[in-house]
């Protein structure tokens, strides 16, 4: 067993874990934050996307020990004081989700995308989320949701 300390959504957690434990299992099973989903276990679908030290990573193919000392943000930590993050709001406004399973990962990728490119073109959005699979929406309204958030974060409506 190994001891790790990870700051998740602004709260520090120190836990003894098996060195082989995947980060997504640490988040879901050890910390009980089940908003982050698992869709493929092969780093393809992106349902498990979180922010680690500000960068979007797929937590199904990271070991928990790799997150030792890191700051992690999951979907549960995105809204602040009850106010939805503009990307969350965009998904609601634009019907960017149906079953919702890919949504937490998709939102985290959207947050990462807009941080690096605050005013993306449609093409840049599509490439920005190419590591996240959605089987319900055909991506149409996800693109619109991210466009909505970009506009809002730029101070538009």
């Amino acid at each position: 067993m190994t001891e790790i300390t990870v700051n998740v959504n602004g709260k520090s957690y120190t836990r003894e874990i098996e060195p082989r434990m995947l980060l997504v299992h640490f988040i879901r099973d050890v910390l009980g934050l089940t908003g982050t989903n698992i869709g493929c276990e092969t780093s393809v679908c992106g349902a498990c996307t979180i922010l680690m030290d500000g960068q979007a990573v797929k937590s199904c193919t990271q070991l928990a020990v790799q997150a030792d000392g890191s700051d992690v943000t999951t979907i549960e930590g995105l809204a602040s004081n009850g106010d939805l993050h503009p990307v969350q709001e965009g998904f609601w406004e634009k019907h960017g989700l149906q079953c919702g399973y890919c949504t937490p990962g998709m939102i985290m990728s959207g947050v990462d995308l807009l941080k690096n490119n605050p005013n993306p073109t449609e093409d840049e959005i599509r490439h920005g989320i190419e590591g996240n699979l959605c089987r319900c929406t055909g991506y149409h309204n996800i693109v619109k949701a991210i466009q909505y958030a970009a506009e809002k974060m730029q101070g538009g409506n």
Binding site: T34, G35, T36, E76, W92, L97
Partner: peptide, 21 residues
Amino acid sequence: IKRKEDPRLITGQAKYLDDIQ
């Protein structure tokens, strides 16, 4: 109209099968 079910889905509060302990 916007969906009634979305708030719990966009905040990670929805419980899928594997979320049940």
